[in-house]
Design a binder for these strands. Structure first.
Lengths: 168, 168
DNA sequence: CTTTATTTTCAAAATATTTTGAAAATTCAA
DNA sequence: TTGAATTTTCAAAATATTTTGAAAATAAAG
């Protein structure tokens, strides 16, 4: 397979992959394109390569920047802005984990804490099941939170190396 | 807070949570409802509780069954089918991991393997960056695959207990 | 300042997803 | 069998999301 075809395949499946993770297709495609580009690209490069509108590129680029996955690059003597993606996949993953934790897990845990103590007969079957389910999810979430916290702080090889050694 | 209000809050935020994970809102809400119900429910119970149509309930219930998160229950002497959700959150999580691994991670790894060897000048900057990115993602994916595999097979306390002890 | 290149915004259009509800299929009891 | 209860299907409608593109805003150069 030649580079252009491989590029297209990668971009397209990274895009599809993204949709399963609550990320829109185009944002994931732009991310994919930037990850495999040796040099930073302009908005126009991206528009042309992915055949999408300027507004679309602009919005999704800004979203990628807010996720900490892409940075603006100013090349000396150039008027236009360039965009560059973090290419170290470990950094990409920890950055995504960090953001999703902040945006989703933390608020969920906060809510569950509130729901754990409800008024009513603790002997009642429905009350009991509700409390048990909520507290089970909360405990699990707290564990996950700790594990993810360690993961984002740890160095790749150290963490996975030790983990796999331990568990083998 | 009283049970009914707490229930609604839980269902509604579990639904919102689901949408961030590529699961549709209603499916997640039905799942939430079944997880906090002490007893199995019928399609009509779910329709009434969530104020949604019969077809909607039916489709999403079947989807939950295909994910292995909900089971059909036949109560003796009852004509109608009842539905019951797995309530052990560890089992729920491992089941979701198992399915998503199968549906998403495995196919992605297969594709990346194909893309790792492309025709062309290995010295070319673009070819080099493409290959590096793809192989980096693939290596990471394979690690993740192993970790998830172990996680799915391990017992909750054993796994998290050891992991946290090691990393503290 | 004025002009021109570039980026950003956002209402409207296009597309995609979800939901409904009624008809068809199935299941079970009599 | 037959018929009533129940479940399933799926085209059409409703809703939600994404994309466009042109106008407004901003930034740099002359």
């Amino acid at each position: 397979m030649k580079l252009p075809e491989a590029k297209n395949q990668f971009i397209s499946s990274w895009g599809a992959f993204g949709t399963h993770w609550g990320i829109n297709r185009t944002m994931a495609q732009i991310h994919a394109l930037l990850m495999i580009s040796a040099d930073p690209l302009t908005q126009d490069d991206i528009m042309e390569e992915l055949e999408i509108s300027r507004g679309n590129v602009n919005m999704n680029i800004r979203e990628l920047i807010s996720w900490g996955l892409v940075e603006r690059v100013i090349l000396p003597g150039e008027r236009r802005e360039y965009f560059n993606a973090e290419k170290d996949i470990w950094k990409v993953a920890t950055q995504i984990i960090r953001e999703r934790k902040k945006r989703e897990l933390d608020p969920m845990l906060k809510l569950l804490a509130q729901l754990e103590n409800i008024d009513g007969d603790k002997k009642d079957k429905q009350v009991k099941q509700f409390t048990e389910t909520v507290s089970g999810i909360r405990k699990f979430g707290k564990h996950a939170d700790q594990v993810l916290e360690l993961m984002v702080k740890a160095d790749e090889n150290w963490f996975l190396g030790n983990l796999l050694k331990l568990l083998k």
